[in-house]
Simulated scan of single mutants.
Amino acid sequence: MTDKFIFRFVAGVTIFVVAVVIVLNRHLIPGPETPPAFTPYLPMLNAILNGTCSVLLLTSLYFIKQGNITVHKRLNILTFCLSSLFLVSYILFHYLMRTDTMYGDVNGDGILSKSELADVGSLRKIYLLILVPHIVLAAGVLPLILLSFYRGLQMQVQKHKKLVRWAFPIWLFVTISGVVVYLMIKPYYHF
């Protein structure tokens, strides 16, 4: 496979995933009238997958620092698979769930009164300060992850290292912030 093909493939996958997430978050494709019974558990599953990926990424870093390429590679493949499972679960949840959850929405009506906003004011700002970079970086890190995986699996070590300098900290931030976002929004789920 040529680099040109790989770059086009990565660009295509990235555009497709980002487009699907945007379409589902805007509810442009309606889900079922009644979501399956397992649907409310998907956000918790996503947080568990993100938390596990955080631990695996840090463990992978430890093993590569020790020079154990085999364990490093296996951990990264496992992390990639769990992150892929997260993405499927995330997409499934947003397809099945027809409502959005807003931070501070104690009534579950999607409208925050002035008193509700005042009650959660500074915490809501912190939540948004974590959520916004989480979303932006989650979309942006996908091509870095895909390219660094390709370079690593091809044993193109120098190119892999250059990509991982950026991919690793961003991916780690996204997985950790995903857990934090879940823990902060969880009290406002009404399903």
Rank of each mutant, 00 (worst) to 15 (best):
M1C: 05
D3I: 11
R8G: 14
R8A: 06
R8V: 03
F9M: 15
A11C: 07
A11H: 14
V13W: 11
V13M: 10
V17A: 13
V17P: 07
V18M: 15
V18G: 10
A19C: 12
V21F: 11
V21E: 03
V21K: 13
V21G: 07
I22G: 09
I22D: 07
L24P: 02
N25P: 02
I29E: 13
P30F: 01
G31E: 00
P32F: 05
T34F: 06
T34S: 08
P35D: 01
P35R: 05
P36D: 08
F38Y: 08
L42V: 09
M44V: 15
N46Y: 00
A47S: 04
N50E: 02
S54F: 10
V55G: 12
L56G: 12
L58R: 06
L58W: 04
T59P: 03
Y62C: 11
Y62K: 07
Y62F: 13
I64W: 01
I64P: 02
K65S: 11
K65R: 12
N68G: 13
T70F: 09
H72W: 13
H72Q: 12
K73Y: 07
R74Q: 15
N76M: 10
I77W: 03
C81H: 05
S83R: 02
L85W: 06
V88T: 08
V88F: 11
S89H: 08
Y90F: 14
Y90P: 02
H94M: 12
Y95V: 09
Y95M: 10
L96D: 00
T101R: 06
G104I: 15
N107R: 15
N107I: 11
G110I: 14
L112W: 15
K114G: 05
A118C: 14
D119M: 15
G121L: 15
S122C: 12
S122H: 14
L123N: 04
R124V: 04
K125T: 13
L128D: 07
L129C: 11
I130P: 03
L131I: 03
H134M: 02
H134E: 00
L137H: 10
A139P: 06
G140C: 03
V141K: 08
P143T: 09
L144H: 01
I145F: 07
L146W: 08
L146V: 08
L147V: 04
F149E: 00
R151A: 07
R151D: 00
R151V: 07
G152F: 08
G152Q: 08
L153Q: 05
L153H: 09
Q154W: 12
Q154T: 13
M155G: 05
Q156C: 05
K159L: 06
K161S: 11
K162A: 03
K162C: 01
R165A: 10
W166E: 01
A167M: 04
A167R: 03
A167H: 01
I170H: 07
I170W: 10
W171H: 04
L172N: 07
F173E: 00
V174T: 04
V174A: 06
T175W: 00
T175F: 04
S177D: 03
S177Y: 11
V179T: 13
V179N: 06
V180I: 13
L183T: 09
I185Y: 10
K186G: 04
P187T: 09
P187K: 11
Y188P: 05
